[in-house]
Design a protein around this nucleic acid. Structure first.
Lengths: 143, 143
DNA sequence: ATCCTAATTGAAAAGACTTTTCAATTAGGA
DNA sequence: TCCTAATTGAAAAGTCTTTTCAATTAGGAT
């Protein structure tokens, strides 16, 4: 199921939020690429759709969308963080070190490992954050 | 093998860095707790050892120590990041959501999962970042 | 279709965090 | 003990993010 502007907008509505031009612009920006985008990048891209999209609004919109799990924050190796559209359910990201292309892995084969960790540490495990970095198929061929 | 001030200092030396009071103070701070500390916290704790430890120096020292893998950055759920002493080799952290206590898991049972990811995505996997959050044994008993 | 109200907006300001610059100090080999 | 390059703290600059506030807007009520 690929997210469209319509389905995403619908989700905003369902959570009682208004569907405004600036919010559409943010969705447009995020839909335009699979790479994680910084707030500033989202603003720049979004301005193609809503000319006076403010950076402040991008921050507020991302916060909102993160709450309702429309977007997901991603920590990049260089310390920046970006946002990508979230696919529903529990997923992990594989990020290309070179071009920042992202693939989401749905389904998470980590249950056993987490059980082992719980047993070993005495912690009650409530969540985990995994990001995998590598070189995407394209970038492997570039020296 | 638990790190001591001596072994850590030794490693700084081996990498050609001088062993200064401010650097010792940072190590003292990090040795004093298993929790991830922010630069500001490290400064505050470190000033007990080196009274005029500057925040700038803490940043520089952490950068240095991260390069030679004496410390490791940790992303906390609330967005802050902290630093903890790194144990050598590949480890992951389990962080208590409530008190921020950290346990390192050495040895990483994720090889199979990463192979699966590589096969599925076509990426050449070069690294991964995993943090596990939960409640530590103590905090489970606090409502 | 128009009105109304609360939600939302952009700009400016404030705030937090981090890095750079630079003169003064310090570690540690000569 | 001396010397030199590494290191330091303070101040300034820079970046990123949040708050404030008056103006605008979406969308249900009329």
């Amino acid at each position: 199921m690929t997210a469209t502007l319509e389905t995403l907008a619908q989700q905003l509505r369902e959570h009682g939020h208004k569907l405004t031009q600036p919010r559409c612009a943010v969705l447009h920006a995020l839909l335009s690429t699979a790479k994680p985008l910084s707030p500033a990048e989202i603003q720049a891209l979004g301005q193609g759709f809503c000319a006076d999209l403010g950076l402040v609004t991008v921050y507020r919109t991302l916060e909102l969308m993160e709450e309702i799990e429309l977007v997901r924050p991603v920590h990049l190796a260089d310390g920046c963080h970006g946002y990508v559209l979230a696919t529903p359910g529990h997923t992990h990201h594989v990020i290309c070190e070179r071009c920042h292309a992202v693939i989401e892995i749905s389904g998470c084969g980590m249950g056993d490992f987490l059980n082992f960790v719980a047993e070993r540490t005495g912690y009650r495990i409530t969540g985990h954050w995994l990001e995998i970095s590598g070189l995407c198929a394209d970038c492997q061929h570039i020296p």
